[in-house]
Simulated assay, not measured.
Amino acid sequence: MKILVSGAGMAGLATGMDLTATGHDVTVIERAQHLRTNGSPIDIRGEALDVAENMGILRQLQDSRVSTTDLSVFIDGAGNVIAALPVQEINDTADDIEIAREDLARILHAGLDEHTPVVFGESIRSLHDDGTGVDVVFASGKTDRFDLVVGADGMHSITRRLTFGPEGDYLEHLGFYVALTDLPSARGEAGSNPFLNWPGHMIGIARYKNEALGVLNFRHDWIDYDYHDLDVQKQILFDTFGDHHEWRVPEILDAVARDPELYFDSVSQIHMDDWAKGRVVLVGDAAHCASNLSGRGASLAILGAWRLAQALRDHPDDLDSVYEQYEVLHRPSVDKAQAFARPGGDLVMPATHEALELRNARLRDMATDIGGAE
């Protein structure tokens, strides 16, 4: 089949790699001018590790492992450690791999067949599915026809909007926002990754390899803003964190002001009854964003890409059967991952002083129990 994959994030690159390996003619497009690699390290967990081994990339993932989450601690306003992040509550198994986003993108991109192009600076303007193929008009004005279009273009998927309708029909806001900013002043610092809380807020530093990020999270009802407007996003952060001057909060906000590639978005999920319609199918966050609070988005992307490719191999002439198999195999993993996000916000951003104190006390007791057991 001649297949277009829209989006060169983790889901899109994995889909391109898997579909090419099963004999399809694949083109990957990406709206950005480069691979999207900004963001904190991500995790490969559970069944996704088995898929990574089948894809031939597990050893590379293991060799690129980082320990950002393992070194994360909660601190007070003076920078004193209160408690460590309970990694054992987050990981599925001891074999889970945390990896820098740019390393995973590099590994997946390198795994593409040499005849599988990745076209940067391109996106879909319109789709027309006539039942036998999909005519695509690109933002550049070029046109082409494909047997199948795979939307791997993230939570704000253009492919989903054009095929299934407005984003608001499928997006569930979980009540949080997240921002990540480059923090050059913290590069090269040794020690733990500290995070400061006050009710409904968390701000901290995540270091890995030679990089450092400022991480800002806060609770808030839905904010109606233009997610393409960087200045508006920065102002939201200044308004939310600007009254706090303890620890390194001003330093992180200074980094926000200078960062031309700040990441800011709602913490939301995508819920759909069906991930396919006609000759268009969705993978990754476009189909079932679980949010960063789940810690399982990259794993779902890798699993979903593999299961879609497997279904196409098993039913090469029957798309209905392809979609049925893909959803039957993959939806339990999605449901599990999305459920993990629910308690995640209460762990990292307790809503009240009382909840914050209870969390800290629980984590201190947990550390004491572990220490006593050793």
Rank of each mutant, 00 (worst) to 15 (best):
L19T: 07
I302P: 12
S192Y: 14
V26N: 01
A355V: 13
L312D: 02
C289A: 14
T352Y: 01
I29G: 00
L196N: 04
F241M: 10
I370Y: 15
I223A: 04
M366E: 09
E251G: 11
F241L: 11
R31K: 13
G191K: 05
G131P: 01
Q233V: 12
V81R: 08
E374Q: 11
L148Q: 06
H24K: 07
T368G: 08
K209R: 15
V348F: 12
I3F: 02
K277G: 03
E327T: 13
H245G: 09
P86G: 03
E172A: 12
L237T: 02
E98S: 10
D335R: 14
D265I: 06
P250F: 03
L282S: 03
G121T: 00
A355S: 11
R145P: 08
G16D: 02
V334L: 02
E47P: 11
D103T: 14
G154K: 00
D335M: 14
L358F: 07
D153R: 01
D317T: 13
G7C: 05
H201R: 11
L35D: 03
W222C: 12
A298N: 09
V281P: 13
G133A: 10
E374V: 15
D63F: 04
K142H: 06
D335S: 12
Q310T: 11
I82W: 04
G23L: 06
V118S: 00
R279Y: 13
G372H: 11
A84R: 13
A84F: 13
S266G: 13
S140F: 04
E261K: 10
L104V: 15
D274E: 11
H330T: 14
Q60P: 01
R258D: 14
R125P: 07
P199G: 09
A361T: 14
R101W: 06
G165Q: 06
E47W: 11
L347T: 08
D317M: 09
L363D: 04
A84E: 15
W306H: 13
R59T: 15
R207C: 09
A32D: 09
A139Y: 01
E261F: 09
V81D: 02
D221H: 05
A287P: 02
D50E: 14
A255Q: 08
L71D: 15
H109Y: 12
L4I: 00
V150H: 00
L300H: 05
M155F: 10
D273C: 12
Y227Q: 07
G131M: 06
L183C: 07
R219N: 04
D76Q: 05
L282K: 03
L308N: 02
